[in-house]
Design a protein around this nucleic acid. Structure first.
Lengths: 193, 193
DNA sequence: CGAAAATTTGACATGACTCAACTGGAGTGG
DNA sequence: CCACTCCAGTTGAGTCATGTCAAATTTTCG
């Protein structure tokens, strides 16, 4: 089960199985049902989670009561409120399970302590961040660049697996449009294809 | 001069001056006049740059001929086309000097080779990426969340130094509005203050 | 000084939002 | 197994923020 994490680490760096057996002891396997709120606004966030199974989303409710989804997470993704996690400020996001979830949990202090004896682990996380950097830049670009319909197309193309597993209103809140607008976009796409 | 880089590294990690003297030899100091194009679309990008002095911006020209600014960079910032740099794809961005610039240049291969003997250098870059991660999430949030005027307020508040040094149309292309809209927003702010 | 670039202003167009009503499906309890 | 409720999604009508295009003005800089 934890091999799933090793496999993922090995997509980025060459990690020895013996070292991994040391590391994996510091993770805890946790199980949550659909609709469970993993992280709630105003918590102090000292953990992050690797998704073994399930689907989650990180979102925020703004002053007008509107939801904005910042991230979905499925198998082999990491999830947390990373603003709170990195900056040590109270969380502004909520993270909820959209399906029953099986996760590997680790605290920030434990993980960073592992970076000294296992520099390859630190490298893995650096490379993860490089990927996130690119993904974020492309998302910012599409918000500057593209119409709502084009952003929806790009979303479906980039994350076909996610599109199947989440509600349309959640996709709308990720794309920065209202559910009504997304509904109209979807209708139009059906007709033109 | 290169001490400026050491000082910046030391804001993130404790780095020994002796080790730094080794590392800094691998950087090249380069000088460019205002308007010089540091990176042009379709280049292969194998370098990144630390800004000792000056101001630059990373932007793209879309299919409709419109500019979209993804990043400004001033003293102590790193700049490159990071999609091309990290992903080894041809660049889509241009990087131009908005002022005369003094930069420290290093190639990706040289830098990553330094990560093995100097794990603290890798840590510095990981922490840099964590910061970028947070900044990007906040920028995405504000594009989902805020009106054009609120985004402008947030920009001025977050980057007061940059606002002084770049053209309004460049800020507009960073915020995702037209220069005309930004002009109207600025007019309205003057009247209400 | 003069030309080019940047900014401002006005008139008008439009994509997306709001609000409200309606439809359909999923889940629950009797 | 049906009745009921709740939630998600759709549709319509009207509004609004921002875009477009064109022209005037101001600033920058060779």
């Amino acid at each position: 089960m934890a091999n799933q994490l090793l496999n993922h680490i090995n997509t980025r760096v060459a990690f020895q199985e013996s070292a991994f057996r040391e590391i994996v002891q510091h993770f805890e396997t946790v199980n949550f049902p659909k609709k469970h709120q993993l992280i709630g606004a105003d918590d102090a966030i000292s953990h992050q989670y690797f998704v073994l199974k399930g689907c989650l989303r990180t979102y925020l409710i703004d002053a007008q009561g509107k939801e904005h989804t910042i991230q979905f997470a499925v198998e082999d993704w990491w999830v947390s409120d990373y603003i709170a996690y990195y900056k040590k400020v109270p969380s502004i996001f909520k993270v909820e399970c959209l399906e029953d979830c099986l996760l590997l949990k680790i605290s920030k202090s434990t993980l960073t302590a592992l970076f000294d004896p296992y520099p390859m682990l630190e490298r893995y996380f650096r490379l993860q961040l490089e990927n996130a950097f690119v993904a974020f830049q492309q998302r910012i670009l599409s918000s500057l660049n593209l119409t709502a319909e084009e952003r929806y197309d790009a979303f479906i193309k980039t994350y076909p697996a996610i599109e199947q597993r989440v509600k349309n209103y959640q996709i709308a809140s990720y794309l920065g449009v209202t559910p009504e607008s997304l509904s109209r976009i979807r209708k139009q796409r059906l007709q033109s294809s």
